[in-house]
Amino acid sequence: MNKQIQNLYERAQKEQRLIIGLMSGTSMDGLDIALCDVTGSGTQTQIQILAFKTWAYNDDFRTKIKAVFSKRDVDLQLVCLMNEYIANVHAELINLALKEWGYKNDQIDFIASHGQTIFHSPKSLHKLTDYPNGTMQIGDGDHIAVKTGIITLSDFRQKHLAGGGEGAPLAVYGDYLIFSKESEDRVMLNIGGIANFTYLPGSLKANEIFSTDVGPGNTLMDQYVQKHYNIFYDKNSEIASSGILNEKLLSTLLNCGFFDDDFPKTTGPELFNLEYLQSAQKASATESIEKEHVMATLCHFSAETISNAIKKCFGANAAATVFMSGGGMHNPLLASLLKVKLPNSVFMSTADLGINPDAKEAVLFAVLANETLCGSPINFGQRQGVPSICMGKISLPE
């Protein structure tokens, strides 16, 4: 047997595994690195975060990603080069984190890398009848494995596509294993660039669970302040809080077929971008309103789409237990609007369940890798968009 295959087999057989989960989202703020202690698999999975940090991307690196991000027309050579470039940067950051935390690389069993999404194109968005769902994440797993010396699982979303899904969201798999609780219906709400949630029924029946994107989280607000204020995001919603909701603009922003589609569904900045906003402003004759009023309206837009999606599941008087994660939960205006729009629901964070909300997405990929190596596909029934599969390509370091 090849010694690398033997190494993979032996590490997968361990009772206790150290797995690094990586997440770099559409907000492109940095690389989340979560070092997880994992035992068991399936519904017996136990996970503890041993260390976590977000390595903030510098402006140069972020600019390089943006040059190939969410564009139909792009320099193919640059996409090719960025696939390796991002992987090398991520590998370097992993090595630095392990040194900072006092771990040697050979102590780590596996890396689970989400990669960097540069384009997401489900059929509901591209509407090309001859073509399937598509998505692309770059940051090659082989480069990470070789540069760190650690077996790496990557490119998780392609298997989801192959199994009949849209490549997103994948949170349903990890949320079910980590956060389900008998006799308590839960909503695991993650507000990143795009907002998504997983519904976890108290019945614990996997065939009743689903995860879905619901619309923009931070993406439109971030894009707007980056263009008009030359800042990365609206810290503490200072700009949005100084503005006033424009009802005409909000109504036009909400006039989109995506919001009428059934769950589960996916979307991305390919739809919700500044062109979308500009079209809505033109249609609502709000092109001249003050920038802070635009920001206030965009924040209301995110809150409205999230709350409407939860009401779609639980009814107009939704009384859900909502556990929040992602950067959007730190937006005080957005958080307060959600509580106003869902007055009968209880809002908490995944910290109340023992998982740092900023680390949650990275942890979920560690769980996905653990299932591929040590578990088996969870039976989610025959529902469209939730294939019962294990995900992730395996890259060996030698």
Rank of each mutant, 00 (worst) to 15 (best):
R383L: 15
Q278D: 14
F119H: 10
Q46K: 15
Q4F: 11
T372I: 12
I111F: 01
F323R: 01
V68P: 12
K265R: 10
K104A: 07
S41V: 15
L245T: 05
G257K: 05
K147T: 07
L364H: 13
E398G: 13
Y103F: 14
I118P: 12
S302Y: 07
M1R: 13
Q223A: 06
K341P: 13
M23H: 08
F210E: 01
I20Q: 05
L200A: 13
Q226A: 03
E238R: 10
Q382D: 15
L220Y: 03
E270V: 09
L31N: 11
I239P: 04
Y57Q: 03
G392S: 06
V74F: 10
L274M: 11
F258K: 00
N7S: 14
T266P: 10
S388P: 11
K393Y: 09
D234R: 03
G165R: 09
F179A: 10
D185N: 15
Q77S: 09
V172D: 11
F179M: 13
T152D: 02
P357V: 13
G21W: 01
I355P: 11
P357K: 04
I389Q: 14
V363R: 11
E238M: 02
P357N: 07
N207E: 13
I65M: 10
I244M: 08
K127Y: 02
G202Y: 13
G193F: 11
V68R: 12
V74C: 08
S237V: 00
Y85M: 03
G139N: 01
S121Q: 08
D142K: 04
N331Y: 10
V225I: 00
H330E: 07
T117I: 00
E238N: 08
S345I: 13
S251I: 08
K248E: 09
S395M: 02
M295K: 06
I191E: 10
K311E: 04
T267I: 04
V294M: 06
E208C: 03
L353G: 12
N2M: 10
N83I: 02
I209Q: 04
T305D: 07
P132T: 08
K341L: 12
Y229W: 06
T135H: 05
